[in-house]
Amino acid sequence: MPVTFTFGEWLSARSVIGSTLAELGGEYDNLWTITPEIGATLGEFRALYPDRFLDVGIAEQVSIGVAAGLAYEGNIPVVSGMLPFLSMRALEQIRSDVCYPNLPVKIIGTHGGLVGNGGSTHYAVEDLALMCALTNMTVTSIADPLMAGDILRQSMKMSGPIYIRLGVGKSDMVLYEPGQHDIQIGKGIVARDGYDATIFTHGTTVAQALEAAETLGALGHSIRVIDMFTLKPIDADLIERCAKETGGRFVVLEDHLAYGGLASRIADVLVDRNINLTAFERLGIPQVYAGFGGDEELRDKYGYGLTSTISAIMRVLATK
């Protein structure tokens, strides 16, 4: 089973995405990359396949609409940009031009969560709620930079759209040793096994959940960490299994609004499948427009940092 958790290697998810796209561009002569002027990641692809690269300028709606047009003509477009703008400015284009006709458009971007210190215009904190609401959309949120490349590669087989969420993507911890985990779209990853409680998380907070589990492990608590990187379709069977195997004690931790993201998706499964828990806590962004500060500082300030995570686990463990 998993567990090997090394705070060692750091990689840029953006550069992994960049080189993966360059590789895929050679394998698929119908793969395109499109950007609304945030194209630094696409440099390698652009150099190799300039005729399949398009920078539409600062025009997110157009980037998605153009991708839909390309997809109608048999191409596989990847739109790369900043998620607050792609997920909100271009929301209707994503819904009506891409999801409605179920086109194989891939949307990949950075700034998911309270990251990057840009202030509230630059934090995508409701994007997962919006994307999960769209029929036909597959929704992912990725922690491990190598995995970002993996998921992009897997998504080439898909016939519909996918949303791939990253944090800042400049420097991310490698969490999973290549080949050690079965990483498949639609399946949660058991990032650390345990039997007293489960933390479900995704994206930028996976490392924090692992750290909390490790800290509590030293105190004799056995905490399972599930990287639920696919929010839609959700791995309902895994949720059910964790309820049985970890005493019905759940903490959901995410760099997204606490209501509307993973916690809400899990709550839906619990209600739909009539699963009773002993304790359920959700940690995420409250109903505020957050201000400035470092990523960790903001998580601490808004009650979903490491200390809060440990406290929440302690509370669910204490629930009889």
């Binding site: 210190n117 840009g118 201000g291 400035f292 300030k301």
Partner: peptide, 8 residues
């Protein structure tokens, strides 16, 4: 953290 002066 908490400053009124930031990137935007």
């Amino acid at each position: 953290l908490g400053s009124a002066y930031g990137m935007h």
